[in-house]
Amino acid sequence: MHTQLDVNGRAYALDHDPRTTLLDALRDHIGLYGTKKGCDHGQCGACTVLVNGRRINSCLTLAAMHDGDEITTVEGLGEPGALAPLQQAFVDCDGYQCGYCTPGQIMSATGMLEEAKAGDPSHVSASLSGDVALDDSEIAERMSGNLCRCSAYPFIRQAIHSVEGKE
């Protein structure tokens, strides 16, 4: 079947198996291997991308459901020599070790910062309305869908803190 995806500002016309997930479409059909497959079941977050600005586990959705959607992957944020501030912060804070969950952490954090800015509450928010103060426990709660077995968690959150409110 045919699906048109807008990935990192570029249009891709895909001819694919109806069972192809968005994750596999990005990786094996388009060749953007930055988005990682850690579990294929929405349990680890390594495949997180932005779809029309919202973060999503790309393994849990079919490519066919995203005809015409705007997808942002980690490759779309920046590249070596021209990294996005959050990407550079991960380098400076050592917010990774093996690097495999890193694209998902970065995309998830990118989406998360927008959610907080929009006032979306989390499980640990003191109030369901009003501004969200992104302290460490808020960030930890909001990032808990992204596993990091190297357990770089404190340094990932340091990186996120360091760019928060600075764009």
Partner: peptide, 21 residues
């Protein structure tokens, strides 16, 4: 010192075993 492989990892350009077809 920052990891020299860092920029590749944070930009999705470090190629792991399955990252090719």
């Amino acid at each position: 010192m920052n990891r020299p492989d860092g920029p590749l990892k944070v930009s999705g350009r470090a190629d792991y075993a399955a990252d090719r077809l």
